[in-house]
Amino acid sequence: MASARPVLRPAPAPAEQPAPVHLSAEGVAVDFDLGGRTQRVLTDIHLKIGKGQLVALVGPSGCGKSTLLRLFAGLMKPSAGKIEVAGMSPVEAARQKRIGVAFQDATLLPWKTALDNAAFLLETADPSLSRAEVRARAETNLHLVGLAGAEGKRPSQLSGGMRQRVAIARALTLDPEVLLLDEPFGALDAITREEMGTLLLDIWQRTQKTVLLVTHAFDEAVFLASDIHVMGTGPARIIETIASDLPYPRDAQTYRDPRFAALEARLRELLVKSHKGAT
């Protein structure tokens, strides 16, 4: 990365010019086999996410939103329906390094430094790259997530937020088209969580990647996403899709925007209703 920060481009407004579909789920259902008894954890999921969009998937814990993310990552197969990433199967897309994943736990390797942790997934994914090149890319992305100077530190010497930054740098080092983030800030304290949200927006606006963010925090979803898909339980399906009217770029002022409060209230109302429906 050059020392001068690139100018932030406003995100494409999806309503005006619909972006080509990047992630799609058609009639997807997932059954879990619980010792002879099958339980349907996802049903009738239809989802289209345009290229370069930042989309949030919200819902109560255990509603299957992580399962949906795992489907897009190619980590499991749907029992019915079709999942596509960039027009191909998720497994194929993953093989071509089009998908970067980060989870709630940073899942760093304790025996590697921050730099080696950021490098390690690309190293695994593409053994043909030279070590120097992998490290250079990892270093660039560590700087991008604000960890210049921490390259040589081990995970035990990093704070929770810094570890999560390494995890995001590790995903970015693959240079994927799609970022799948499964509650990446869920284990962080409130202030760090907001910082990381701003960082994610910044990265998204610079790199124009398609981002699918799974979260159960309303404010996080409203602050970050252009589209919010709300999931309900029993069995899980998408009960509503909200297109955010908050403009980008967003910053600390966004929290005080009346539209922010309205969106958050709408989300809360939907989730409370779906929660009551389930119990």
Binding site: L75, R95, V101, F103, D105, L109, L121, T124, L174
Partner: peptide
């Protein structure tokens, strides 16, 4: 080994042998 770490390795197409060598053994 943390299942998320195994998922992460699988998400870039790593097989059981690679996961054993690069993650499980050092862990």
């Amino acid at each position: 080994v943390d299942p998320s770490l195994v998922s992460l390795m699988r998400s870039v197409g790593a097989g059981p042998g690679t996961i054993l060598k690069r993650v499980r053994l050092p862990h």
